[in-house]
Design a protein around this nucleic acid. Structure first.
Length: 260
DNA sequence: AAGACACGCAACCGCAAACAA
DNA sequence: ATTGTTTGCGGTTGCGTGTCT
């Protein structure tokens, strides 16, 4: 569902007025999205407050960062969370606790906000319901809650480096089917903030045959799939025992209920 | 048909860590 | 060492939409 921007008329900059210096809040308009996307695509990020300024947005740097991270970033998956991903969320939540950003780091294309929302709106309810059901069935006190994640041994699983970047592969969203983009030669991935070469090209995004990534320089560069080592399945990790425990909790042996 | 309710998502808020001056 | 700024995170809220009564 897409909410209508709260102030569609005064989106972006350049329309002056007494409110022109007032920071905007609320939903982002398409024009603001475009300004932010273009700014970051062409010039990268030095500080988020400067991004807002340079893009001519009356938004806080914080707001710009959030919008980019949760919505505009080219690597975001737009498909619904799959059962496999849900299983991963549950197992990671069990071992890490509510460290959504850490969990998101292990799930390419998913944001902490998305995972958090998914957890709060769906999984937690199901787990609670399942626990209650088990409690009623047993007629006993519920089992003691698991110790806080901080006290548990945290199983650190290194995210798979599948694009030579911190963020991993970034499929270009269909939201921006065609746009101009500055190709940045990151100088062998050395994190140089000054691109050695740049090329402007037009990307036709099918979402299937190209990817982009944000390098250490925060500049976006687009890669062909052939350039990427995308180990299907490798970035989905299981924590030993976690899934079994979850499934037995969620799916009592005599129940045929499904998550879906 | 209309109101109530539940759900899902986007975005804000407050805090703490990291960093720079 | 101190202070101010920026960034990142998790919790929470507000609102649009779908479903139920």
């Amino acid at each position: 569902m897409v909410r209508k921007p709260s102030h569609v008329d005064d989106a972006g900059a350049g329309n002056g007025g007494a409110e022109s210096n007032k920071e905007r809040k609320g939903l982002w308009s398409p024009e603001e999205d475009e300004r932010l996307f273009t700014q970051i695509t062409y010039h990268g990020v030095s500080t988020w407050s400067s991004v807002a300024q340079l893009a001519g947005l009356r938004r806080s740097g914080k707001s710009c960062r959030l919008r980019w991270m949760n919505y505009l970033r080219p690597d975001l998956k737009k498909e619904p969370i799959t059962k496999r991903e849900e299983e991963l969320i549950v197992s990671l939540q069990r071992s890490l606790g509510n460290r959504w950003s850490t969990i998101a780091a292990r799930m390419p294309g998913r944001t902490d906000n998305e995972i958090k929302n998914y957890w709060n709106s769906r999984i937690r309810k199901r787990l609670n319901a399942a626990a209650k059901q088990a409690e009623v069935a047993a007629g006993t006190e519920p089992p003691p809650p698991p110790p806080p994640a901080a006290e548990k041994k945290v199983v650190e699983v290194e995210p798979v480096n599948n694009g030579g970047t911190e963020a991993g592969p970034m499929p270009i969203p269909a939201r921006f089917p065609v746009f101009e983009c500055q190709l940045v030669d990151a100088g062998g991935g050395g994190g140089e903030s000054t691109p050695s070469t740049t090329t402007t090209s037009t990307q036709q995004n099918s979402g299937d045959d190209s990817e982009a990534s944000v390098g250490e320089s925060n500049m976006i560069h687009f890669l062909s799939f052939d350039d990427l080592d995308y180990p299907a399945g490798d970035f989905l990790v299981d924590l030993p025992g976690a899934m079994d425990a979850w499934e037995s909790e969620l799916y009592p042996a005599n129940s045929t209920s499904s998550l879906y």
